[in-house]
Nucleic acid binder design. Structure first.
Lengths: 196, 196
DNA sequence: ATCTATACTGACCAGTCAGTCATTATACTG
DNA sequence: CAGTATAATGACTGACTGGTCAGTATAGAT
């Protein structure tokens, strides 16, 4: 009784992630993913029901990685600010070479994928909400410790994503200036208003 | 000597904008756009070279609208902060019913559209850069008037886009909480750190 | 070693849709 | 009004790709 290989599944996931980052979902061919994973095209369908299913797999996989980073850092003994900073830096480190991956995270980008939206909603949105909850928890901790202003932790978590996004844009090929990603985090922390 | 109708061109652009916002570029059929615009499918090709050309047209059109709003507001006699706030509110007002439009603005989302990326680069990126320059000018003004911290205006402009994005997410169907868009702007202005 | 059940393969197929173009419609001119 | 040139039409076409499945390969059991 032969087993499907976890190894092969991961190879397909990784190949799909790479291709989706390079080209986007719609310009990604199953054939390309298969070739990059070193399997036959039909093999992809042994592990994933169809193309949208593969996409959902990739997105959940990415979000779980992002959450793992948060969890590891949340366990450290340092201030909430330092924790947010570390999550930020770690994420930047991971995605700097593939900024397009961020589109996997933003849901309104995924309105685009109408064919998978119901499935996306059922299987990815819960994960994404957990990601935001993880970030919210860090913010809540900071509020309780008097480090952060009294703001909605949920919105702050979402704004953190926006700041992360801006960070990637700020160093990107097309819109980049003389920035480092940390400057975007600085704006997130301190705002643009001058204190009086 | 018959002329092509500007009216018809705009109808096609508007229809394409609506469909792209509702479904994304790849789930948008030329047939759907034509029907929504009240023209035949082949007519679309009288005004736009091909599908990517239509997409570029829509994106440039949206960016120009966003810029018009900035320009109008920049002319008013009020503080730089108030100006940014008004741009923010006006944009929110325009896009609240179609948050997906924001994907037209963020370039790494458009890496997805490999078929149009070179064309996009040549025709849309210059407009997008101008949009960011317009915002940067407002920020620069605020810095000179002592209202804003000494930060890179360019990065602040990008962060403004990120904050705008977060605002839309914060009130969205999937990730929304009890927020108003203005709260995201508040975070952009004052950050999350508590002042000491 | 043989047998079995499942993994794996890749040529094939059907459906889709962007783009085409022969035909028709219509605005404009004299 | 007739003629002309261009706009507009929509059925058709061909390229493409996701998914299928008959055939092959192979791991595991006996």
């Amino acid at each position: 009784m032969r087993q499907k290989s976890t190894e092969r599944r991961n190879a397909i996931l990784q190949a799909a992630f790479n291709t989706v980052c390079a080209r986007g979902y719609y310009e990604t061919r199953i054939d390309d993913v298969a070739r990059a994973a070193g399997v036959a095209k039909g093999t992809v369908y042994l592990y994933f029901k169809d193309k949208p299913d593969l996409y959902v797999g990739v997105t959940v996989w990415l979000i779980n990685q992002a959450r793992t980073i948060i969890k590891d850092i949340a366990r450290q003994q340092c201030s909430p600010s330092a924790k947010l900073q570390q999550v930020f830096s770690s994420w930047v480190e991971h995605l700097l070479s593939r900024p397009t991956a961020i589109s996997l995270i933003f849901p309104e980008m995924n309105y685009h994928h109408c064919a998978i939206t119901p499935r996306f909603r059922q299987r990815v949105m819960p994960e994404l909400k957990k990601l935001i909850d993880d970030l919210s928890a860090l913010v809540r901790d900071g509020i309780q410790k008097g480090e952060f202003r009294k703001i909605d932790p949920h919105l702050a978590a979402i704004s953190f994503l926006g700041a992360f996004h801006a960070a990637l844009l700020g160093v990107s090929r097309y819109l980049g200036g003389k920035n480092t990603p940390e400057r975007a985090l600085d704006i997130f922390f301190y705002g643009i208003r001058r204190s009086v």
